[in-house]
């Protein structure tokens, strides 16, 4: 038998003692052509943990996030969500690329919120939230509608259910986008700079919704430039630069007392 089998058997034994982490990245690398954007990233996100990814633009934060739900494919290394590999099936000592249909099934459990909202403009807020449950999971329209109303109320937009995205403010659109992701009952939520496209005065309302979500025990990975949010809500702060994890730790400590020069230089600019 090969080394890898023993290695995975060892991992299985470890998993029996501690619960499987929600996200486990082991030596993940990603290249676009000759440009290596992620270099040997290893990190772990536990259930219920809120992890904030910070760093300068072009540091690979967003790419890493997109690898987690297989919008991008990792070039090497292993990336698993809730114990199952993303985008691959493991047969013996080989990784088989998944059929897109199976990859789509994996993504159902992972919610994603984008910087540019990406709401469906031809549907009302309510229809946006109902769309995935009815089309992907086959939930009945009446059930999906009731749940969508519930979710819109949760993000404070009960009265805007029948508005089209074009008639909502940026902050309201992003809250609808969060409700839309929650409608699939995800076990993990990914936020890709959710407040970067917003007017400063609208940032708060979106962060408040995300705080509530974190309190409810949702596992969240948040790429952000909002250091205040990171300090208040995150359990772990990861600082990335040049495709590498430079520093990881408790947000309060990393922000107050960064160990690496690069972290210090970055934080002195944003804080």
């Amino acid at each position: 038998m090969s080394e890898q089998t023993t290695a995975s058997a060892g991992a299985g034994a470890a998993a029996a003692q501690t619960p499987t982490p929600m996200v486990l990245a082991e030596h993940v690398s990603k290249s676009f052509g000759s440009n290596e954007v992620l270099k040997d990233i290893s990190l772990e996100v536990k259930r219920g943990e809120v992890l904030c990814l910070v760093g300068p633009s072009g540091s690979g934060k967003s790419t890493f996030l997109r690898c987690i739900n297989h919008l991008e494919q990792v070039s090497s290394g292993r990336l698993s969500v809730d114990g199952s590999l993303v985008g691959y099936r493991e047969v013996g000592d080989r990784l088989h690329e998944m059929h897109p249909k199976d990859a789509a099934k994996q993504r159902r459990d992972i919610g994603m919120v984008f910087q540019r909202f990406n709401l469906f403009p031809h549907m009302t807020a309510l229809e946006n939230v109902m769309e995935a449950p009815t089309q992907v999971k086959g939930v009945s329209k009446s059930k999906a509608r009731a749940r969508a109303h519930e979710l819109l109320a949760r993000v404070g937009l009960a009265e805007r259910a029948d508005y089209y995205p074009a008639h909502l403010s940026g902050g309201q659109q992003q809250r609808v986008a969060i409700a839309r992701a929650l409608a699939m009952d995800p076990k993990l939520m990914l936020f890709d700079e959710p407040t970067s496209a917003l007017d400063p005065e609208l940032v708060g309302e979106v962060l408040d919704v995300m705080k509530g979500l974190a309190k409810s025990g949702m596992t969240m990975i948040v790429v952000t430039h909002e250091m205040g949010f990171a300090r208040e809500v995150a359990d772990t702060l990861v600082f990335m630069d040049g495709g590498v994890v430079v520093e990881t730790g408790d947000p309060g400590e990393v922000l107050a007392n960064p160990q690496h020069e690069r972290t210090k230089a970055f934080l002195s600019k944003v804080l």
Binding site: L71, A104, K105, I110, F114, R116, E131, V136
Partner: peptide, 26 residues
């Protein structure tokens, strides 16, 4: 906008559903 099919994909929609429900209507 390519962000539209990306959002649909992230919600777990397949290629066909994305085309039919999200891209073609727009």
């Amino acid at each position: 906008d390519p962000g539209q099919s990306e959002a649909a994909t992230a919600l777990g929609m397949g290629w066909g559903t994305t085309m039919r429900r999200v891209v073609l209507p727009q």
